[in-house]
């Protein structure tokens, strides 16, 4: 039987110690052990990006990472994007530009877009679309999402 393991990691800037099952994915650990339910399970096989988080500085899909791999890791989830209670420009832009409808894809798009803008503060439309190709949205048709990211990028550079 797989056993319980104690994991020490920094999540959204906060050092944490938590108990997980050895067979948990990072997504399961976040949602079910720690109670951070912002990251969504869309496909559970790496294809949709709804579970995207930033792990040690790079974008990953948390459903294809094992929780057991996290010893000492640094993780940012959608819950860690806002500064205190204050939304970052990317989040405001998603709201203002109506870049979501049902919202299940939104945490993944926000995290992936954050990783993009950290890496490239002035991406072209092509670069945004290429970067976000692994995030699927059933509702918006993508254009509004792309515009929100462009909008946020402009605001952040100002």
């Amino acid at each position: 039987m797989s056993s319980r393991i104690i994991i020490q990691a920094t999540i959204n800037g906060e050092p944490m110690e938590f108990l997980a099952d050895e067979r948990d994915s990072l997504l399961e650990a976040l949602r079910e052990r720690i109670g951070l339910t912002g990251s969504k399970e869309g496909c559970n096989n790496g294809n949709c990006g709804a579970c995207a988080v930033i792990l040690d500085g790079r974008l990953v899909n948390s459903c294809v990472v094992m929780a057991a791999e996290l010893q000492g890791a640094n993780i940012t989830t959608v819950e860690g994007l806002a500064n205190g209670g204050e939304l970052i420009p990317l989040q405001t832009a998603f709201l203002e530009d109506a870049a979501l409808q049902c919202g299940i894809c939104t945490p993944g798009f926000l995290v992936a877009s954050k990783a993009l803008l950290d890496f490239n503060p002035n991406p072209s439309e092509y670069e945004i679309r290429y970067w976000l190709a692994g995030n699927l949205c059933r509702c918006t048709g993508y254009d509004k999402i792309i515009r929100a990211v462009q909008h946020a990028a402009t605001q952040m550079r100002a």
């Binding site: 995207a52 790079r58 970067w131 692994g134 995030n135």
Partner: peptide
């Protein structure tokens, strides 16, 4: 290979 998040791993 995959998208950005897949290429992270």
């Amino acid at each position: 290979i995959g998208g950005t998040a897949i290429q992270g791993r």
